[in-house]
Design a protein around this nucleic acid. Structure first.
Length: 95
DNA sequence: TTTCAAACACGTCAAGATGA
DNA sequence: TCATCTTGACGTGTTTGAAA
């Protein structure tokens, strides 16, 4: 009979079964399948969190760009006004 | 109030980038 | 070279706002 030891999980990542089976059962098809399933679940969980973080960063980046656009548009408007004022001043001087 | 399209959020997969 | 991370693409479910 295989001897399994189930450790209480310390985190969501370490969820699963820790196997301390005797060496002739370490590579049994069932153990291998369980290990593969566990690895897949961990990978999916990590990727789920990575995708969330990636989206959060992308949203933040887009917000930064939008802020920058707003600032530059304001600057552009101010410069256009300034140029207009200078042109007016120049025209009146040459009259 | 109901219907429906558009926008949004999420989970998954796959491919490329990166570090050990 | 391998394991892990990052991110674009896709499919699916949910939310939202306008039109009937």
């Amino acid at each position: 009979m295989p001897v399994y030891q189930i450790h209480s999980p310390t985190s969501i990542m370490s969820q699963g079964v820790v196997v301390t089976a005797s060496s002739n059962n370490l590579h049994s098809p069932q153990i291998m399948a369980e290990e593969a399933t566990r690895k897949r679940e961990i990978r999916l969980l990590k990727n789920r969190e990575a995708a969330r973080e990636c989206r959060r960063k992308k949203k933040e980046y887009v917000k930064c760009l939008e802020n920058r656009v707003a600032v530059l548009e304001k600057q552009n408007k101010t410069l256009i006004e300034e140029l207009k004022a200078l042109k007016d001043l120049y025209c009146h001087k040459t009259e």
